[in-house]
Design a protein around this nucleic acid. Structure first.
Length: 178
DNA sequence: CCCTGATTCGC
DNA sequence: GCGAATCAGG
């Protein structure tokens, strides 16, 4: 088996959602090993996410434990964070029912899109009903799963003018199918 | 021992 | 580019 577009996008998706390399390897099938997944992820420069292993024992960070825990959760949902930076936040409270939920209030079917600065006390997650099988609600999933490799990157204006659905549709198909 | 990702290096 | 072997940690 080789790394087709399908398999690579699935790899990106699962890796971004915090699945372990072993889980991804099993999901992709084709007799792939976790080493193959890790190796591919490394080549794709996707290695920046939560790691069960801590290579640096020293932690100069003086931030409170609660903040550090929250930051970790945000890193686990790295996909929306990266997408948000890409899009320059086109939908702030659009899908938010007003208040949002804290980290500990997150339940299985709640949208995990982070809102605000994790260092702020009013930081929260979207909390809307997430799409079936997805960690985000419909509106946020469209942003989270945008293909990063458009010839030009989307900015907020493009997002409004052309609509996100068109751009996200392709990636969403892959996601839903999985 | 089980697991995790990171890195190396022959292919 | 690929991934098994290996490394290093939990």
């Amino acid at each position: 088996m080789s790394w087709t577009e399908e398999r690579v996008s699935l790899l990106k998706q699962l890796w971004g959602e915090g699945k372990s390399a072993a889980e991804i390897a099993k999901a992709l099938g084709g007799g792939l090993t976790r080493n193959a997944v890790i190796g591919k992820a490394h080549r794709l420069k996707l290695s920046n996410r939560v790691s069960p292993i801590q290579q640096n024992s020293k932690t100069p960070d003086a931030a409170p434990i609660a903040v550090k825990a929250t930051v970790r959760v945000v890193e686990e949902t790295a996909a929306p964070v990266r997408a948000a930076a890409r899009v320059a936040i086109a939908i702030p409270q659009a899908a938010n029912n007003g208040k949002g939920v804290s980290m500990v209030e997150l339940k299985d079917r709640m949208c995990r899109w982070p809102v605000g600065d994790p260092k702020d006390s009013n930081f929260h997650f979207c909390g809307c009903s997430s799409e079936a099988g997805l960690p985000y609600c419909g509106a946020h999933a469209k942003i989270a799963y945008q293909a990063p490799s458009r010839s030009r990157q989307l900015n907020a204006e493009d997002f409004e003018r052309e609509g996100s659905a068109v751009h996200a549709e392709e990636e969403l198909k892959d996601v839903v199918r999985a």
